[in-house]
């Protein structure tokens, strides 16, 4: 039953998201524009690996934009459609439904990475070829899981409030910088780096870079992966507890609807 709920929610979400103009913008236009922007920024820096940065940076920004706006925005849309409260009243765990929704959005959003890669290749003739395709594949799967987790946690917190759209806008850019989607985290002030290093996506992005650019020391890659695994486990536990608490809280507050 759980799988069926997860799958049908995912398909439903993909259908609903794709027909929305804003989502299509995030998915199709955003990665192309961002790739061009970042490529122009890095071209004069003299770095030879700018393609990898640009593709990853723009792709990840697009991915995050899609996930962030949709996980929060969809909750609000459901609130206004009156379906949000239904999802809390059916026998299927609302947690499964949430995962299904975000999984659907994330899978669709993966297109941004592909688009960014194509843009950099076609316009700048820099076909970013990953140094370690095997690693890349592995890391991509883990990155998706990691992003899923972050958005599930965010979505839980956002159900508590009716001001979802406000928070959603406040959330997008800080994560882009804190997790080093575009600029490496090492360029940030030390106190910010401390925060960055607690966020799982930071490590996922590091791993992606290593897989794309290659590393002199293989152990660094595996160490990074270990740290990410621990952080994700912690985030997973937090998300579970948070979900249980929110599920109770919304019924005490009674704010699943607009009235």
């Amino acid at each position: 039953m759980t799988w069926q709920v997860l799958l049908s929610t995912m398909l439903l979400q993909m259908k609903q998201s794709f027909v929305r103009p804003m989502f299509r913008f995030c998915l199709l236009a955003n990665p192309v524009l961002n790739t061009i922007l970042i490529c122009e920024m890095f071209r004069s820096s003299g770095r030879t690996d700018f393609a990898a940065y640009a593709v990853l940076g723009a792709g990840l920004m697009g991915l995050w934009c899609c996930i962030c706006f949709s996980s929060a925005g969809d909750l609000n849309r459901e609130r206004y459609m009156g379906t949000l409260s239904l999802l809390f009243a059916v026998p299927a765990p609302v947690e499964t439904v949430l995962w299904g929704k975000i999984l659907g959005n994330t899978l669709l959003s993966l297109g941004t990475l592909l688009l960014a890669w194509l843009t950099a290749g076609v316009l700048y003739e820099t076909w970013a070829i990953p140094a370690r395709p095997g690693w890349l594949l592995l890391v991509l799967v883990i990155t998706i899981l990691c992003f899923l987790q972050v958005s599930v946690l965010t979505a839980w917190l956002l159900t508590l409030s009716r001001k979802t759209t406000l928070y959603m806008n406040c959330l997008e850019l800080p994560v882009v910088f804190l997790c080093g989607f575009v600029v490496p985290v090492e360029e940030l002030p030390a106190w910010l780096q401390a925060i960055s290093n607690l966020l799982p996506p930071t490590w996922a992005v590091r791993l992606l870079r290593m897989a794309v650019a290659g590393v002199p020391d293989e152990n660094a890659f595996w160490r990074c992966l270990g740290i990410l695994a621990v952080l994700m486990l912690a985030a997973g536990l937090l998300s579970r507890r948070c979900g249980r608490a929110v599920d109770r809280r919304v019924r005490v507050l009674g704010n699943l609807e607009v009235c």
Partner: peptide, 9 residues
């Protein structure tokens, strides 16, 4: 009322 339905389905 008209709430509680997925309009796009």
């Amino acid at each position: 009322g008209e709430m509680g339905v997925y309009r796009r389905l």
